[in-house]
Amino acid sequence: MSPEMMSADVQTIAQGVLFEEARALDEQRFHDWLALYAEDAVFWVPAWTDEGRPTQDPETELSLIHCTRAQLAERVGRVEGGRSLASTPLPRTAHVISNVLAEGAGDGRIFVRSVALTHAFNIKRRETTLAYALVEHDLVATGAGWRIARKKILLQNDYIATMMDFYTV
């Protein structure tokens, strides 16, 4: 296999996972979405500082969201449970994934950078919000297929309209 072919494969694999993730969120198939995450996955949305840099160390600095897969499962339960005013009715979303750049990271891993535009329509208020973010995925090959080991979402417009959650970024 030539290096170019390998690169094309990596790109195809990465786009497949990212597009499937976006589709699962937009169709509100949240358990299918969760299944794309590895058991020890981390889902991270850094905050920004007043000095204008994104926070880098979630152990000593604030994040907007810093979740394990188990905590993502809790969020899915909260959204589906009907007891969260902010999540009822659930906004309809369209995740647009673009500028995907994938590179092999060795040892059955792929590192992917992308840009995500997430439009969310608040049904109750009849208003649309847009979140735009620079995104990184670490993908890992498992017996069950490619899984997300880490997702970092750097929210570029961190001036939040009322609320955000895993499905609005």
């Binding site: 920004w48 000593t60 600095e61 609320m163």
Partner: peptide, 9 residues
Amino acid sequence: VPGVVRYVY
């Protein structure tokens, strides 16, 4: 703690 969160309701 470094990091500020702003939102509008």
